[in-house]
């Protein structure tokens, strides 16, 4: 039967399987974002230290992680580390690790920018009120930076979701792989399946990321 390829999406559990595939990458990216936020805040604080060594170390880390394509980092973590050190990390673990390292670098730079955008008189006024360094940070600086940080952090989440689509290339069965399986199984009954399946994957990613982008933009406008 040469039926229209769109039907293939609704055969059996195909659609549910695609959603499950998307969830695989979403889970990796959400986990990486959740780990990146606290680590990035620490890195950002570390980067504002005036110590030259702290500056140099964080700079090299940031530049390397940001200049290398994430796919290269994934290959290093998944293929390279196993070969060099004999640590046999699973693909999921490698992915979470790489995206956390990357997210921490991005987040760290955001935090550094936000911390440095706080005017100096905020620190001086807090000191004049007799607050300790820690109190100043927790009650004065942090609340102000968090507000500035929320929209770019939400944006980082969508970038993370989009970038984790790469994990199919280190063999994780996510939405693209599931799509390919569906296409291969239905090769003869639905020869045009690939158009519809990959089109559906495209739309699914869009539906996952778009609301998050909208939220970031709304917050940015409201808090400007």
């Amino acid at each position: 039967m040469q039926a229209s390829g769109i039907n293939v999406l609704f055969l059996g559990r195909n659609f549910a399987r695609l959603i499950e595939g998307l969830w695989v990458t979403m889970r990796i990216s959400l986990l990486a974002v959740l780990l990146s936020i606290p680590l990035g805040i620490l890195l950002g604080m570390f980067m504002t230290l005036r110590h030259p060594l702290a500056k140099a170390v964080s700079r090299v880390y940031l530049e390397f992680v940001r200049i290398m394509p994430q796919l290269v980092l994934l290959f290093i973590a998944y293929f390279g580390v196993t070969r060099t050190f004999g640590w046999n990390w699973s693909a999921d673990f490698s992915a979470v690790l790489v995206f956390t390292l990357w997210g921490t670098a991005e987040m760290g730079d955001l935090v550094r920018g936000a911390l440095q955008s706080i005017p100096k008189h905020q620190y001086d006024s807090a000191a004049a009120l007799g607050m300790t360094k820690w109190q100043t940070f927790v009650y004065i600086i942090l609340p102000q930076t968090l507000r500035r940080l929320l929209p770019p952090t939400i944006n980082l989440t969508t970038r993370m979701i989009k970038t984790t689509s790469l994990v199919v290339l280190i063999g994780i069965t996510e939405v693209l792989k599931v799509g390919k399986q569906i296409i291969d199984v239905n090769r003869f009954a639905y020869p045009t399946a690939s158009l519809w399946v990959y089109g559906a994957v495209f739309i699914l990613y869009f539906l996952a990321c778009w609301p998050i982008s909208l939220l970031a933009r709304t917050l940015e406008k409201r808090w400007r």
Binding site: T158, K162, T163, S165, L166, V168, L169, L176, G179, L195, Y198, G199, V201, F202, Y205, F206, C209, W210, S213
Partner: peptide
């Protein structure tokens, strides 16, 4: 274009 990954765009 901004809310979908390049890999998915290329596959399509």
């Amino acid at each position: 274009s901004r809310n979908t990954p390049l890999l998915v765009q290329l596959f399509f």
